[in-house]
């Protein structure tokens, strides 16, 4: 009776999770192995140095990071864009599918006609989403640690874990936001639209921040800043920023519970 919804949700996402796992491992490994071609190509770095600052920011190469160093390379190819995108798409899709999706399909009616509280239902959905995202995060770290040495990277578990965790928490913020909107509205379109628009908007703002002076300070109110600034791959995890991400996730999960408790279902 205790965590049935959690298990059922994960079981029904099993195939999708397997697909995403394969994609994550392949993509991370591919990026790591491609480093071999760039390693030592000083001309490549010289070319990037000519680029404006905001391009370097978006490419994850701000603050004098070099693309031919392992950390600079991974940040610019994986942590500043590819990996956040994987987490964002996976977690947002998961949240839409498993909350507003279930409501739209009508299976919610049957589940919630059983002695389960709405609070518990949403929290189990949230837990399932978090655990599924963690699977991808762990796979990312393991793939990095396994393939890094083969490509001649001199980074270790702690850097890989710190950087992946930071990016995962960015994704979780938007996953929880999706859950909150879906819980409050029951609408697939609304939850998908609001969270993807905000995710894209925040990402662009993070990239533009160094360019637009008016954004100074405001750029700190951005999950991408909290998860990417540093960057964690060279500077280690930014504890304050990660706590901030966790707090936002918790607040959004609480909002999801509150929104779901209040309203009519399937309307």
């Amino acid at each position: 009776m205790r965590t049935e919804t959690f298990y059922r949700t994960l079981r029904n996402r099993r195939r999708s999770l397997i697909g995403w796992s394969i994609a994550t491992v392949s993509l991370v490994a591919l990026i790591v192995f491609s480093y071999v071609a760039i390693k030592g190509q000083q001309s490549y770095q010289d070319m990037l140095d000519q680029y404006p600052e905001f391009v370097q920011q978006i490419l994850g190469l701000s603050g004098g990071l070099s693309i031919i160093s392992p950390a600079g390379y991974l940040n610019s190819q994986l942590f500043a864009n590819t990996l956040p995108l994987i987490f964002l798409i996976f977690l947002i899709a998961f949240a839409v599918r498993e909350t507003a999706g279930e409501e739209g399909d009508g299976t919610l009616d049957l589940a919630l006609a059983h002695p389960v509280t709405r609070e518990r239902f949403v929290l189990e959905k949230f837990a399932a989403m978090t655990v599924a995202g963690c699977v991808l995060a762990v796979l990312s770290v393991v793939t990095l640690a396994a393939t890094g040495p083969m490509a001649g990277m001199d980074l270790g578990w702690s850097q890989y874990t710190g950087a992946t965790l930071s990016v995962f928490l960015i994704g979780l913020v938007f996953g929880a936001l999706t859950l909150a909107v879906a819980a409050a509205t029951g609408s697939r379109a609304m939850s998908l639209g609001v969270s993807s628009a905000l995710a894209v908007g925040m990402f662009v703002l993070w990239g533009l921040a160094p360019l637009i002076s008016g954004l100074k300070g405001v750029d700190r109110l951005n999950p991408f800043f909290w998860g990417l600034a540093g960057p964690p791959i060279t500077e280690g995890i930014q504890v304050g920023n990660l706590l901030l991400l966790v707090v936002v996730v918790v607040v959004l999960a609480a909002a999801a519970v509150a929104g779901f408790r209040r309203r009519d279902l399937g309307v």
Partner: peptide, 24 residues
Amino acid sequence: PGELSLWETMTTRQVLDHLGSLRR
């Protein structure tokens, strides 16, 4: 429910087990 929807990818047995476990 008047418009019954069940989880499409589950078997009847899994659906009944799941719903049974949601109660005592």
